[in-house]
Structures are given as C-alpha cells and as structure tokens.
C-alpha cells in the first residue's frame, strides 16, 4: 500500500472525504446506473443510490463527528432507511457490518480487509446469495480476496480487480435479484450493482491516494 489510510487523513476528515467522493461518483454515474438497470432490471439503481448518498451527504457533518466505526454504521443505517429496493438493505447491511468490525479507522491493509470481509458476509447473508449470481458480490468478493493476498500495490490491485470483475459479470446469467427473472436474457449486460460497487471502490481508492 503506497499510502496508509491514516496517513491521508484521520477521523472526521477521512469520513468527510469518503462520503464526498462516493456521493460525487454516484451522482456522476446516476443515469448510467439506471441505464444498466433498465436493461436487466427496473431502471432505478442510479436513483436509488443517489437518494441514499444524498441523504448520507446531507448528514455528512454529523456522521464525520462519530468514531470511524460508528460513522460507517450510520452510513449503513442511512442507506437502509433511504434507498429501499434491493441495494438499500445490501449496501446498508454491508456498511453496518463493516462499521461494527472496529471503532477506529483502519491503520493497515489487514484491518481494511477485515472490514471488507464483514461487509461481504453481510451482503451474502442478507441477499441469500454468493458469487456467480451476477450481483454486486461478483465485484466485492474478488476485490476482498485480492486484497487479502497482500498485494504490493493494494490500490492498483483493488481498482484493477474491480474493473475486471465488473466486466466478468457481463456474460453471467443472473440467479439473484430482479435480473434473475430474465433467465438467459440477463446475459450480455453488466450488473448495475456490480458497477456501483466498482464505482465506490474506485472513489475510495481516490480518497486513499489523496486525489
């Protein structure tokens, strides 16, 4: 890892930066996420995510005043209460679980991975799903595993793995979520939740890099 999270910013500054970056990327890709969802779902994923992160951004100061773990939990409950749909409980549960994994901001890659694993487990449990079902898990799981291997450049690894994993959802036939109702017709399209996960991972990397 070229830069440790705690070196970039600590406490509320980090949280503020993370919220800002994720909020920005979701808004910038709102229509794209809807379009992806139109192809194999119900065309609302961009709106759902935007509604959630607008609420999070609106509460940014309040959230940033919390300890890091509590801040993630608060972001999670905000998403649960504002998003609705499938992505709300899933991202919400993920962040609530990641937040519960520890009070302070992670100071090592191992700590980052621990939070990611907690998040992935929560999504699997809430969604009764696993990799290969053409969902956000098909990005979140490979990225977690790649980081767990302790790569030399964690940020590049996270970005690269996320991008590849996203692309790998294209040929998949969905077996979970709304796209599953399409059966074979779900193949040939990126999964919207996989794309939003990749966008969030990219935005987090940007913050960690200090961009």
């Amino acid at each position: 890892m070229t830069t440790e999270p705690s070196e970039v910013a600590s406490g509320d500054a980090l949280v503020t930066a993370l919220i800002g970056a994720v909020h920005d990327t979701i808004l910038a890709h709102r229509d794209e996420l809807c379009d992806l969802d139109r192809a194999i779902g119900d065309a609302d994923h961009g709106h759902n995510m935007a509604r959630g992160f607008e609420a999070v951004a609106a509460a940014s100061d309040e959230i940033a005043a919390l300890p890091f773990g509590k801040a993630l939990q608060k972001i999670g409950t905000t998403l649960v209460m504002k998003v609705g749909g499938a992505s709300g409980p899933l991202y919400g549960s993920a962040l609530m679980a990641a937040g519960k994994a520890g009070e302070d901001a992670p100071t090592s890659l191992v700590e980052v991975v621990a939070r990611l694993e907690a998040a992935v487990d929560a999504v699997k449990q809430r969604g009764k799903s696993d990799v290969g079902a053409k969902t956000m898990l098909d990005v979140l799981v490979p990225v977690t595993e790649a980081l767990k291997a302790g790569p030399a450049d964690p940020l590049a690894t996270a970005r690269g793995t996320a991008a590849e994993a996203l692309e790998a959802t294209r040929p998949m036939v969905a077996t979970k979520g709304r796209a599953a109702f399409l059966g074979e017709r779900s193949a040939g399209h990126l999964d919207p939740g996989a794309r939003s996960s990749e966008l969030i991972i990219d935005a987090v990397c940007d913050v960690v890099e200090g961009r």
């Binding site: 709106h47 759902n48 609705g84």
Partner: peptide, 11 residues
C-alpha cells in the same frame, strides 16, 4: 408505499 418500483424501507 415505496418510491416508484422501489421497495419501501424498513423504517
């Protein structure tokens, strides 16, 4: 009632 075509939230 949730948003249009979006399930309601737990609250």
């Amino acid at each position: 009632p949730g948003q249009v075509f979006t399930s309601p939230t737990p609250d």
